[in-house]
Design a protein around this nucleic acid. Structure first.
Length: 637
RNA sequence: GCCAUCCUAGCUCAAUUGGCAGAGCAGGCGCUUCGUAAGCGUCAGGUUAUGGGUUCAAGUCCCAUGGAUGGCUCCA
């Protein structure tokens, strides 16, 4: 996969990058780059552009109230509260405002106004920002020395400072460029208007956020715009439709994908692969229903924590049933279905389970975030002594899969609990949290697996290792997950008899290395830009007769390839050869076999690769051996 | 769910800003039988997302609903 961005200095230290500041700030780290973003010129340019934008906004909306305006990856934003109009309705920016603001920003830049730094006392600061409630709140936070502008805790009491350029003074710790003239007037652009909650809390008022991008020079801006366009072409939502992999239908409902035949092939191939790998790794397959009684989810502890993301229950003969949002409780039931001995452990129950989760409408995102999904799920029941080996076994599976898919742009995130969530987001047993987290930390460290630790991202029943990936358009998702569960086995009274003849409670590892079909395929479409390796490609071979007299022969070739297990089809349309090739290319079919008089004569086919490479005529049997080999070995050409 | 924007044929997009809904690609049919990314012709395809309103007249203006997109929030 191409680096998403190779030309901009970005934050390098994962701990800085992935600090839990939410949203856009989290990004794929580039391990090659060691200059902290905060220390780059680009950071100053973007930060300064945000201030200039704020000044321009105030000139249009004099009674605007300012929130915060930091540099971010690729640009900057500023949050504003435009107040209410005469009718009492909240005012918002319009598209025309954007143009006007951008124009005004260029004028301010031309003025070469100095950015003047000033330290102030909290008292002075509050006086300076009279009538600016958000700034006052920030100052009070700084005064108490508790939180920074994002609401994150800080250790030391910071200095309160302001920067002034031209007529505009803003609460700010910098740094900035020396004067507005150092912001390249032709290398920035305002991008969009968005709503954003004050301090990222949906219970707070929603502000108007203006996003902009800024670069050191125009060519960088142009490159960035081009990059965005390239990303759009790679977007699985576009490719999914063009390549006829899946659709969404209004009448079916949002977040409920319909898999077209091509998508069906992808699913079948992934499942066959998973089955093969899991069987070798000692998993056994189970199958469980889509529905269960409410009691099961009360027992598992899901209902009190996650009822909001579950579809509402249906009541039948006085009993409430839920569509399952996960498979674990049923697997627990299978574990508990008979007495277990330590000799049964580890027991690895696998199922590509079909789950339904109610995601709020605005949270849906193509295949990456859906309401119906099929998980590459399994639950491993093991003793504490077996934990390390089992946990590492799962990490090894990840690596095995990722190697086959050539996935290398990811971050393993160690998601731990946070004290403030105990009893709410998390099972209330801090000792067990600390203990299992230490266990995972040790296992990962011993196994030499790089990871970043992020507090307050755990599952409600235990810590986990998530594999974080980025969509073509830059959104972060958890692809695979490997979770420790110390809470559910006791809730289900799961036990096994130890060698000493005592009842012990097993640990449970929840794992989904291949994610869900939805997210995995969404990711793979973008990862391969639709050009799947042959083993996954919905159609592997397009057989192209040059003229109708070659039709019979191509049908024989088709028969031979299908017998060999290849997904091949003759293009028998009245198109000319060139157009048949063009259509096969558009569908990103790995192999095109052109057949004319010469090939027919020699029982051969002329092999054209998806890359455009012409490999010339080869015997049919040679192609069969070659293609089946590539498929068998899951090679990516 | 919240804020903003958008919704015209399967896809990509037009329609002189309130005055006869159109093109390319894709599809059907016919002709063409061709050597590595677009052969020619022809036909069909639409209650302009849905419902209501304003108007002599609505794809265009207003309201509601649905869906999508960019963010925010959320993400077991």
């Amino acid at each position: 996969m191409e680096p998403r961005q190779g030309h901009a200095p970005i934050r390098a230290r994962p701990f800085v990058l992935l600090r839990p500041v939410r949203g856009k700030e989290r990004r794929m780290p580039d391990m090659q780059e060691f200059v902290p973003y905060e220390e780059t010129l680009l950071y100053r340019i973007r930060h300064s552009a945000a201030h200039v934008m704020a000044q321009a906004v105030r000139e249009i909306y004099p009674d605007v109230r300012f929130a915060i305006g930091p540099p971010i990856e690729n640009g900057f934003y500023y949050d504003f509260d435009l107040g209410r109009d005469e009718a009492g309705a909240q005012r918002h920016f319009t598209e025309e405002d954007l143009e006007q603001i951008e124009k005004r920003m260029r004028e301010i830049i031309k003025g070469k106004h100095r950015f003047a730094y000033k330290e102030v006392s909290a008292e002075e600061a509050k006086k300076l920002f009279t009538g600016q409630p958000y700034k006052i709140e920030l100052i009070e936070g700084l005064e108490r020395g508790e939180v920074d502008e994002y609401g994150n805790e800080v250790k030391t009491r910071p200095v309160i400072s302001t920067y002034t350029q031209d007529t505009f003074e803003d609460l700010c710790r910098g740094p900035h460029v020396e004067h507005t003239g150092q912001i390249p007037a032709n290398a920035f652009k305002l991008l969009s208007i968005a709503g954003a909650y004050w301090r990222g809390d949906e219970n707070n008022p929603q502000l108007d956020r203006l996003y902009g991008t800024a670069w050191e020079k125009k060519e960088d801006l142009d490159k960035y715009i081009e990059l965005l366009e390239e990303a759009r072409k790679r977007d699985h939502r576009k490719l999914g439709r063009d390549l006829e992999i899946f659709i969404f239908d209004d009448e079916v409902g949002p977040g409920l994908p319909l898999w077209l035949p091509n998508g069906g092939v992808l699913i079948e191939q992934l499942e066959a692969f998973a089955k093969e790998v899991e069987e070798r790794a000692g998993y056994v397959r189970v199958r469980t229903p889509h529905l269960t009684k409410e009691d099961l989810f009360l027992r598992s502890g899901h209902l009190p924590y996650y009822a909001e993301s579950m579809y509402p229950p249906m009541e039948l003969e006085g009993v409430r049933y839920y569509v399952k949002p996960m498979n674990c409780p049923m697997h627990h039931k299978i574990f508990g279905s008979k007495p277990r001995s330590y000799r049964d452990l580890p027991l690895r129950l696998a199922e590509y389970g079909t789950c339904y989760r109610f995601e709020r409408s605005g949270e849906l995102f193509g295949l990456m975030r859906v309401r119906s999904m099929q998980m590459n799920d399994a639950h491993i029941y093991c003793s504490v002594e077996q934990f390390e080996q089992e946990f590492m076994g799962v990490i090894a599976l990840y690596h095995q899969y990722f190697k086959v898919f050539n996935i290398d742009r990811y971050v393993m995130r160690f998601s731990t609990h946070h004290r403030r969530g105990l009893g709410k987001k998390y099972v209330n047993n801090e000792d067990l949290w600390v203990q299992t987290e230490e266990m995972v930390r040790r296992v990962m460290t011993n196994g030499n697996v790089p990871f970043v630790e992020v507090p307050d991202e755990a599952a409600f029943y235990g810590p986990k290792i998530d594999v974080q990936i980025w969509s073509a358009t830059g959104r972060e998702f958890t692809l695979a997950t490997n979770q420790v569960d110390f809470a559910q086995p006791p809730r289900f009274d799961l036990t096994y008899v130890s060698a000493e003849g005592k009842d012990e409670t097993p640990l449970c590892i929840h794992r989904a290395p291949l994610s869900t079909h939805e997210r995995m395929i969404g990711f793979l479409i973008e990862h391969y830009a639709g050009a799947f390796p042959a083993w996954l490609a919905p159609q592997q071979v397009s057989i192209i007769p040059i003229a109708d007299r070659h039709l019979d022969y191509t049908r024989q070739v088709e028969r031979r390839l299908r017998d060999a297990g290849l997904r091949a089809e003759v293009n028998d349309s009245s198109d000319r050869m060139g157009n048949k090739i063009r259509k096969a290319q558009a569908m990103k079919i790995p192999y095109m076999l052109v057949v004319g008089d010469r090939e027919m004569e020699e029982n051969a086919v002329a092999l054209r690769m998806r890359s455009g490479e012409d490999r010339g005529a080869i015997p049919v049997e040679e192609f069969v051996a070659y293609a089946t080999g590539v498929v068998r070995e899951k090679q990516y050409e």
